[in-house]
Amino acid sequence: MENSSKIFYAALAVLVLGAHGAGLASAGAEGLAFGLFASLTLGGALVCIWERSVVRSAFSLMATFIGIAGLFLLLTADFLAMAQILIYVGGILALILFGVMLTPPDMEERKLPRVLSGLVLIGGGFAWVGMQVADSAHFATRAADASLEGVNNAKRIGVGFLAADQYVVAFELAAVVLTVALVAAVYIARRRRVDLEPAAAGELTGYDASNGGDA
């Protein structure tokens, strides 16, 4: 491990410990949980920026996503937390890694003024976590909010989506936009493959490239 990396990880460890300590001091066990998830989120993001290897950066995103899911849990949004893990870790991160593994090795090295940017980021992150942890002293009263007691989040979200006067139209429109994007992506990918076929060879052998090379 090189020296700048050692400094970075030492600073990160201090930041994480500080967040835990500040959380425990200001809001007890709840604050400790907040400190844990906040440092997972921010620490993952910082490692993601810091690491030279693109694959390690991508893996450190997992800590960020799980930390965010934990923060959702603390806010009693359990459905959102699980959806976060299912979609971001199980789906999107797998796709990112799939893409990253296909990058050529010479793209692995990134050149940034690393020590400077790292120190600025750590300082900023430290300040931000401190502020948030101080804020989280209100967690104890917020989590015990009577109006949220015994609420089935899945049912609430489902009713919100399906009631005709609420979000059903927006939800369906988003689905249509995503489908259009998907179809467009498939179309572009298919056209590229046909373009790769040598046209001259097609003329010589009577190969018809216009139907996708299936003939």
């Binding site: 893996f59 997992m62 359990d78 893990i85 299912l86 870790v89 991160l93 797998a94 890694l97 089935n152």
Partner: peptide, 21 residues
Amino acid sequence: APMGLFLILALTSTTTIGVIM
């Protein structure tokens, strides 16, 4: 958990990341 099945689906999907790693 009221979200039992959803939690199982979410957490088992993270094994993929371990395998890729």
